[in-house]
């Protein structure tokens, strides 16, 4: 077992454990902090798969900004970390069965397709190549994405404004 595969299994274990914790824990604050761990482990996976820029963006935006934003909302809308949510048991079983079937279907599809895999190489300068790709070939979607961000910014301010 090489270092990379050991790291992969480590991050995968963190991801699965803390995702289950996000879904099952009753404390809202613990749930958000588990989501923080999941987002950080995802950044680790990105570094492992040679996506350094995406890993840094993941840490800055998701693990940083998104978690802080969600914690602010938790602070503003609930009565502190003692806030608990009651499970609704009868619904859960059917949703659980549905999700198990859905995940099994995804796994079957993944395993039944012969993926055309190239030889993975560790490249240097992926960020430069990504920037070229983004600003030359995908310039129009990039600009549209900036307009979308602006619209979401204005919309969020208008929605949350106290008037």
């Amino acid at each position: 077992m090489t270092v990379t595969s050991a790291l992969f299994y480590f991050f995968a274990a963190i991801l699965i454990f803390f995702s289950i914790k996000v879904v099952t824990t009753r404390n809202l604050f613990h749930s958000v902090m588990s989501a923080f761990a999941v987002l950080l482990a995802t950044a680790g996976l990105f570094f492992l798969f040679n996506a350094e820029f995406l890993g840094v963006v993941q840490i800055l935006i998701y693990a940083g900004a998104v978690t802080i934003l969600v914690l602010f909302v938790v602070m503003l809308t609930t009565a502190g970390p003692k806030y608990r949510i009651v499970w609704e048991t009868p619904m859960n079983i059917w949703i659980f069965i549905f999700v198990i079937l859905f995940g099994g279907m995804l796994g079957l599809v993944v395993l039944s397709i012969e993926w055309p895999v190239a030889k993975p190489v560790a490249l240097h300068g992926v960020t430069e190549a990504l920037a070229t790709r983004l600003f030359v070939e995908y310039l129009l979607p990039f600009e549209v994405a900036s307009i979308l961000l602006l619209a979401a910014l204005v919309g969020a301010i208008v929605l949350a404004r106290r008037d």
């Binding site: 991801l15 699965i16 995702s19 289950i20 996000v22 879904v23 809202l28 749930s31 958000v32 969600v70 909302v73 938790v74 809308t77 609930t78 949510i85 009651v86 499970w87 609704e88 619904m91 859960n92 949703i95 659980f96 549905f98 999700v99 198990i100 859905f102 995940g103 995804l106």
Partner: peptide
């Protein structure tokens, strides 16, 4: 991970979660 997220989005009661 996607299945776990689906389960949570369908069962949890708080909008934040």
């Amino acid at each position: 991970l996607f299945s776990i997220g689906t389960f949570g989005a369908l069962t949890r009661k708080s909008i934040v979660i």
